[in-house]
Design a protein around this nucleic acid. Structure first.
Lengths: 229, 229
DNA sequence: CCACTAAATGAATGCCGTTCATTTACGATT
DNA sequence: AATCGTAAATGAACGGCATTCATTTAGTGG
């Protein structure tokens, strides 16, 4: 056989693919917005299981360690994603429509956004608003709407928190399997519950989660509505 | 030098500490109850960060791989823990007291139990009741109470789910840092919200989370109460 | 022109959940 | 009583993960 095929590669020869560039690039290829967008795209394609720092770096054609020049941890990335998603929540009706309508559309849209991103909920729930400007902007729009509607100042934050807690819990509920309440072989020992599951009424909604969300949300809207001046 | 010090250890010599036993033990040292108890203890001592299969095995004086003869994954252990904790939730009032009192004590106790175990919430929320017998028992007690109170069958499950969603979300809220709503340097751009945070009324409760929980829970109890026959 | 710094690389680290071949003792079967 | 199958342990792997670090390079400000 010809020597050229068996001999070790000439170390001075250029590789077929040119060696990946090292050191400062002509222009920065990464920034927080780009990382956020790539993270969102990756999560959409691979879900939160497939969302790793390595995969994120691959999406951006970059080494994993490069990410750490722009964020300080994976949690940081999740915060960026969370804040972006919150900006998709619809608060527009608070500026124009009646209070109850505004709360309704806000709550449904909030739940819908995060039901596809439940792994972020533990992050949001304890995140200081300082670290999430768009989230803070949402709170401003909502509390302005509550004020405008004559809601007593001293209750605004508590009411929003109560609604939000319900929204987060309900977002999980959306992801539950359809047969979650199937009592199976233990049906005999749980007659009341088994009967209640069988008689559950969908009221024209697509999913049980929607019925429950409507029920709880309307309860809060009705009761909170009476607290206004 | 004497041969004894430089020569490799005699393979037949007994080690100072007797070699750890290998193979089937005289009596099984592990079972699901023991694993659950140890997991609970470990979580109490080290939190969910320190709760690893290796640490759990160490608590039980066992190799990590031994655990997999009794559970099929770490998630399995979390399910066992979850089911145990659910049995601590107080459903006793559903058998005796008025409906609204029973719901109140159930909801507060449910929230208090899981506010110390929020990492379990994503597990519970999507867990088929078949895999958690004590959880199923809780649902039976609660739905029996709703039935007894004249609640319409077709709404029982939805009402329970709505309450549960609120409870789970509120459990996270308990763990939030006290200054979570401090808008810091962005206070200027969020005048309504900043004012509302400042005027928030604790109503004699210890924590803001308690005020919000009371507000939302009483809204649901009031509204759901009107649905009874 | 030079020193500084921002921004990349890739190798290394340490932890984690999980798998697997192997070992051993109990209990049932012959 | 001897045998056999199986339950239940060990410990050595494995692959994947987030993160750190020394190093390299190219722009930038003095």
């Amino acid at each position: 056989m010809p020597a050229s095929t068996s001999a070790p590669a000439d170390p001075h020869r250029h590789d077929a693919k040119p060696r990946r560039r090292v050191g400062r690039p002509a222009a920065a290829v990464l920034d927080q917005d780009g990382i956020t967008a790539a993270a969102l795209q990756l999560i959409g394609k691979s879900g939160y299981d497939g969302f790793t720092m390595a995969a994120l770096a691959r999406t951006l054609n970059v080494a994993p360690s490069a990410l750490y020049n722009h964020v300080s941890s994976k949690r940081d990335v999740l915060v960026l994603v969370q804040d972006h998603l919150t900006s998709l929540v619809d608060v527009s009706l608070f500026a124009s429509d009646p209070w109850d309508q505004a709360v309704r559309s806000w709550a449904w849209s909030y739940r819908d956004v995060f039901s596809k991103h439940t792994p972020l909920i533990p992050v949001i729930a304890v995140l200081p608003v300082t670290d999430a400007p768009k989230t803070l902007a949402m709170y401003e729009a909502v509390s302005a709407g509550f004020s405008r509607a004559g809601f007593p100042q001293r209750l605004i934050v508590s009411a929003i928190v109560a609604l939000e807690s319900f929204i987060f819990g309900s977002a999980y509920d959306v992801t539950a399997p359809a047969d979650i309440f199937d009592s199976g072989s233990m049906a005999d020992s749980t007659p009341n519950f088994t009967a209640a599951v069988k008689r559950q009424d969908l009221e024209g909604y697509d999913k049980p989660a929607d019925v429950a969300f409507n029920l709880g949300l309307e309860a809060m809207i009705a009761r909170f509505g009476t607290l206004r001046a």
